[in-house]
Design a protein around this nucleic acid. Sequence first.
DNA 1: CCGTCGAAGTTAAGCGCTTAACTAATTTAT
DNA 2: ATAAATTAGTTAAGCGCTTAACTTCGACGG
Lengths: 367, 367
Amino acid sequence: MNHRKVNVTGQIGKSDVVRAGTFAFEKENSFVTIKDIADYVGVSTATVSLALSRNARITKETRDKVFEAVKMLNYRPSTAARNLALNRTKTISLILPEIKHLFLQPFFSLSLNGVYDACLENGYRLQIEVASYQFVKRKRYLRLFQERAIDGLLYVGSTLSDLYLNELNDTGFPVVLSGSYLKNSRIPYVIGDNRKGGEIATMHLFTLGRRKIAHIIGSFNIPSAVDRFEGYRKVLREKNLAYSSHFIGIGKFTAEGGFQAMKKILDYEPDAVFAGNDIMAEGAIQAIKDAGLKIPDDISVCGMDDLPLAKRITPALTTVKYDIYKIAYRAARKLIGKIEGKRNGRSSEFVSVKLIIRESCGAKRGK
Amino acid sequence: MNHRKVNVTGQIGKSDVVRAGTFAFEKENSFVTIKDIADYVGVSTATVSLALSRNARITKETRDKVFEAVKMLNYRPSTAARNLALNRTKTISLILPEIKHLFLQPFFSLSLNGVYDACLENGYRLQIEVASYQFVKRKRYLRLFQERAIDGLLYVGSTLSDLYLNELNDTGFPVVLSGSYLKNSRIPYVIGDNRKGGEIATMHLFTLGRRKIAHIIGSFNIPSAVDRFEGYRKVLREKNLAYSSHFIGIGKFTAEGGFQAMKKILDYEPDAVFAGNDIMAEGAIQAIKDAGLKIPDDISVCGMDDLPLAKRITPALTTVKYDIYKIAYRAARKLIGKIEGKRNGRSSEFVSVKLIIRESCGAKRGK
DNA sequence: CCGTCGAAGTTAAGCGCTTAACTAATTTAT
DNA sequence: ATAAATTAGTTAAGCGCTTAACTTCGACGG
């Protein structure tokens, strides 16, 4: 055993302070450092560092002593020092779109929770950015990268297509998209199977005997909305149902938009409607009720997303579960995988969707 | 001018790389450092550092050269190095409650936006933590502090009363509460004036001639809910109106809860109700409608918070605006002030509330 | 004409941690 | 018995930045 001189005063002083409270410091911001542990145990700081990282070169005996000292002195490594030495931050940044629209809110909090959980499991910190106009214009995400403040970037539900983002990704800096994707871009993404969702919903309505199935799309400019629409079209094609633009409404993702869209469609006497999301479905239901028609008897309604409101409204909404939490969770895991250099197979992935049958479609009528 | 030897190869190599793309690195992670700037300009790194911080000891001439080099080489300081040297992180942590309840969502996103904006304005990064059971149990916030990963802690809408949080605050570590407060604690907070809100709402109903005013409280265990209730009681007392427990319902902050609470209260024939939040007001309105009563003719309804749904429902809800965004923004500013050692007067502060008159109270009946 | 002062830098230490390269002592192989 | 290999550390450099203390040089007052 190596007997080095130990600064007894300093050491006792420190451990006194530590024992005094739960915290590693008293008035004067004196945090316990690796040096304190080294002195306490009587080894070099290198040994402490190696012991803490369970390096095989250090005996179990020494390692135990180190861990004991860590506990005694309540040592915690300095994040900044570690980041500097290791040239990484164990932090990812979540870029959220500005939430102007209420309909984004469940999306938003579910995403956050999914990402947070993935971070927690992997020991990452989560930093938030709101992708305001300023943010994009000033290329704040670029700065975050250049200042080495984060290890990776996770965009959630963004429709922005920024050249620099592609360039950033191409330099090898880890970027992942959650719940959206970019055309003509190599940026990996995780997203729900929107097309399949549209298909399942439409197919379900078809199976219930409906033949005049309308669709309310959020916007033709949002890729995932278009994918849902394409699922719808596919079924019409396969089942030889007539496709008419009279049966297509644009609902802008809002209840009000869904309401207006449905009102117009009603003139053409549909017997079913697949709304591109639950919020628009809610508006559509209101329009149908206002027209004096019965749901599901006169018109079957199917939404998509399975937001909490789906169970709450009357009649309870049949919809396609689109698991935002899972998408975000997986996206974060993929990002962390990229950061840690894992070649994780498929660059992008799809999270499966699932039909949730409630009252609004009429499938339960028999009961 | 000091003529030092400059590593020409290295320098040209670097600046080539820089000019090649928008990014300060190519394949091999070679970021531009302060040393590169120093070499480029022909001064010491100290001079660069001082010039960048606009220290008066450096002439404008030199400073300009430094800034030019920074631009040329696309230099950005390393966050980790800076944090280590300055012993701070320019990061605050926002602790969010777990969002199980939908009603929390607007609260949540508004808070986040307020805090984010305050951070942006002050050059702080925003780190998120979700206060799950795990989080509290493992004292994760304590670790964040001990590992010097953050400069301060902002709790939003939390009801948790954790001993360690008080202790942490007492050591001088900056902690601020947004939208809630703790009994028997010195932790500063920013909150809306709930009591006043209850008062304004009730007083308004009184002014409209109502004398049998009921109240639906979210829960008697949540301080801010109790404060709203106390505002209500105060008006009853001042106006000599009878207070009856039959006129008090507990709505658990949900629409369903508000509905049930109102149903019971209706037996006692109130002529007005002040619901502790808009969500419960929505439920109450449903109950009143179901009973075949007219709003506002038979019963005036007033909510609180002024969530987006308040304008959307029928009749549009009269309510008291409770500005979550502003509360969060102010709370974050207060936290940053504490971090930067400002003695910012009052330790805690109240954000004022405001009556928003719509249809549900009957004040606009005359029009 | 010399000492003093201020201006404009520079030197070097330090922030707390990691790790490549080295060393001393012990084991193992021959 | 001795060289080689292994074990269990240590030393020291480095991560990129800040800043206290020092240096150098020219200006200026007496």
